[in-house]
Design a protein around this nucleic acid. Sequence first.
DNA 1: ATTTATGCAAATCGTTTGCAAACCT
DNA 2: AGGTTTGCAAACGATTTGCATAAAT
Lengths: 144, 144
Amino acid sequence: MTDLHDDIARRLRGARQRYTPARRQLVEVLSDGGGPRTIPELLDRAAAGSQSSLYRNLAVLEQADVVRRLQGAGDVSRFELAEDVTGHHHHHLVCLSCGAIDDFELPADAEQALDDAVAAAVTDAGFATDHHRFDLLGTCHRCA
Amino acid sequence: MTDLHDDIARRLRGARQRYTPARRQLVEVLSDGGGPRTIPELLDRAAAGSQSSLYRNLAVLEQADVVRRLQGAGDVSRFELAEDVTGHHHHHLVCLSCGAIDDFELPADAEQALDDAVAAAVTDAGFATDHHRFDLLGTCHRCA
DNA sequence: ATTTATGCAAATCGTTTGCAAACCT
DNA sequence: AGGTTTGCAAACGATTTGCATAAAT
């Protein structure tokens, strides 16, 4: 826990940004294992100040590679801690019915095989891959 | 070509929708191999009536599984013909710099292995997968 | 004649921004 | 003090919708 905050504080310092109480609280909520969160959810659970500050803090954290923004089913953005920070590479189960997003992981060998196949397929296109996004869209167990 | 329109007309009929000239023209533009298109691009190239009609026609075509809407780098939606219609399963190269989206394909065996790994990983989560979305985000050859 | 599609303008919704006050160092 | 973060309200931009007209069956 502490090392998480230390790590984040370091990253923010590197981006010449401060680790304010509001930002710390935001990270707390995002790290509680509840998966990617929407703005309304964060406003509820974090009581982290006003909506505009929330957007701005998320932008700051995103620039510092602490938070990643992702889009789910509709137009609502969701935010999660970046894999740089958590150390967990994972993918997403996006429920088309309720919009919830859960995490899932692929076995390491499958992940590796995928990366290899992708690298081979993309090299000749002259595309420089930064990261990938692999989501399953469907119906979650709650909405089944 | 003709069979494409026939197929689409059939699908629209099945959804109790008409294959109007504007919708036909829209399909023409989407099928010219230029990749997923934005609303402004479609307005330019299609001259397919007003913006609101364009949105509405895309919605109709999406409901009939003729068109798929996808989100690229930022907040702009892009539209492409559905794989049901084209018969080509593919993925996307999303350029974080210019927002362009190109298609790429994975070798059939890699695609199969991926599907298998995913199925195994997701079964126990009680998630019913409808389809997946696999994108590479990075820098395209134009922006390199 | 009845239903459906169109165009325009106004409304919506998530997100961003301007500005003055509060905060930290 | 000097630069930063906050909160509020206003601005924004992509998308959606209400309504009257035009087109299709």
